[in-house]
Nucleic acid binder design. Structure first.
Length: 405
DNA sequence: TGTCCACTGGAAGGGAGGGCTT
DNA sequence: AAGCCCTCCCTTCCAGTGGACA
């Protein structure tokens, strides 16, 4: 690219009409003051947590709802307000501690040990990242917790991911710790994307964890519109976002189980595209582009972060798919995977393990795998891909840098 | 009606990478 | 340094299974 065109890019950028006033408003980090259509849930949570202000222990809460229905947002909002009130309330705040942990964070809090070390870290102590017996960590956590009189509120976000991975033992222990505490009190707020999750855990844990339940239904298109409008006025300059664009973002996100995060992402990316092209107003086409880019980016990012063998398995699926196969079976994939390993000098894993890797790929949504029975011809998983051709090309591009094809 | 396929998914255990205690 | 413990990723072994087919 020559000097001239570079110049013109920068010129365009500085001269072009600005669209964003404050882009951060459209990210998850931002907590709006007003959360439309969640008044009921907020009130519910607030009522449940209010006893903290009188130094009593609130009930544990179980919160369900799909992604982007405002679970974390509302919880944080209530806790923030709670702390504010406590501060005004002559120093009860000192006795309240809140901890927020996202259980899904890979390599951070997705096992019992790592979650505990996170909890301990939140009390300002550090623990080696491997090596100690788990009960030692429990002990330490217990000591830190009970070191002084305090009311601890522990938010475990995406708790279903943790439990499906390592079982409910940790929840049992955490709820039991509470009964042994002498000075302090521990309240657990579990947040789950999966509604049926609570049915599959130990009944003792269930009853203690879901003393109170709060449900976050998906937003419909109209509610999403309200949410977007609320933020548009803060994030964008006036008259840069037509109503039709808001409606489109809302409609697209409503199709996807009413996900507000998606709606906001669409708007943000559409804005970025418009701004980069020197438009002063966002158009519906920009939203379309934003959608396909969001999908692509998400998928690519997930694939990039997979371990080598998962990538190899995914590549095997992709190859089979490219060969025109639909409803690919575990066996086919394993054969293909074995070839890939051979060509690339990888030590191949067993079919048992590959079977688990396929389930993992299914869990993170890269493939669709269903266990079916073909009668005489056995029982297997049927694996399907639903990715656009364009995306498949990009993925192949990415993987060809890592594998001999 | 029973058989039997091609796996699934549970269980147990090993070894690599690590830390603790003595 | 020895001995013991952990987690994580993986292997080995195997019982279990839904439904097409004889």
């Amino acid at each position: 690219m020559g000097q001239i065109s570079l110049m013109s890019i920068f010129q365009n950028y500085t001269n072009g009409k600005k669209i964003f006033k404050d882009k951060d408003i459209l990210t998850i980090k931002f907590t709006p003051n007003n959360i439309p259509h969640r008044e009921k849930q907020i009130e519910q949570i607030a009522l449940i947590l209010a006893p903290v202000l009188r130094n009593e222990k609130p009930s544990n809460i179980f919160i369900y709802g799909k992604t982007g229905t405002g679970k974390s947002l509302c919880t944080n909002h209530v806790i923030e307000k709670l702390m504010e009130t406590a501060k005004q309330n002559n120093g009860t705040a000192e006795n309240i501690k809140t901890i927020y942990i996202n259980c899904k964070m890979r390599k951070v809090s997705d096992t019992e040990y790592r979650l505990l070390s996170q909890l301990i870290y939140n009390f300002g102590e550090e623990v080696p990242y491997t090596g100690l017996p788990t009960d030692r960590l429990y002990q330490k956590f217990y000591q830190l917790l009970d070191a002084k009189e305090q009311n601890v509120i522990l938010v475990l976000d995406e708790i279903d991911a943790l439990v499906s991975k390592i079982g409910d033992g940790i929840l049992y222990n955490l709820t039991r710790i509470n009964q042994e505490l002498k000075k302090s009190k521990l309240t657990i707020i579990g947040i789950s994307n999966n509604i049926s999750f609570i049915d599959n855990i130990d009944p003792r844990v269930r009853s203690s964890l879901s003393e109170e339940e709060v449900i976050f239904p998906p937003y419909n298109a109209n509610e999403l519109k309200d949410i977007l409008k609320e933020r548009v006025s803060l994030a964008f300059y006036p008259e840069t976002v037509p109503d039709s664009v808001i409606a489109k973002c809302a409609a697209l996100a409503a199709q996807e189980h009413g996900d507000a995060r998606k709606a906001l992402d669409l708007l943000r990316v559409a804005g970025e595209i418009a701004e980069r092209r020197g438009f002063s107003v966002i158009t519906e086409e920009h939203v379309d582009e934003a959608e396909s880019r969001l999908d692509t980016d998400k998928t690519i990012e997930i694939i990039k972060t997979q371990p080598k063998h998962s990538k190899a398995v995914f590549l095997a699926i992709l190859n089979q798919y490219r060969n025109g196969l639909k409803n690919i079976q575990t066996g086919d994939i394993f054969d293909q995977y074995a070839q890939i390993c051979k060509k690339n000098g990888l030590k191949q894993l067993t079919q048992r393990r590959v079977s688990d890797l396929i389930s993992e790929l299914d869990m993170i949504g890269l493939v669709n795998a269903k266990v079916i029975s073909k009668g005489r011809y056995g029982r297997t998983r049927e694996i399907n891909l639903n990715l656009s051709n364009k995306l498949i090309e990009k993925i192949e591009d990415l993987l060809s840098k890592e594998f001999v094809l």
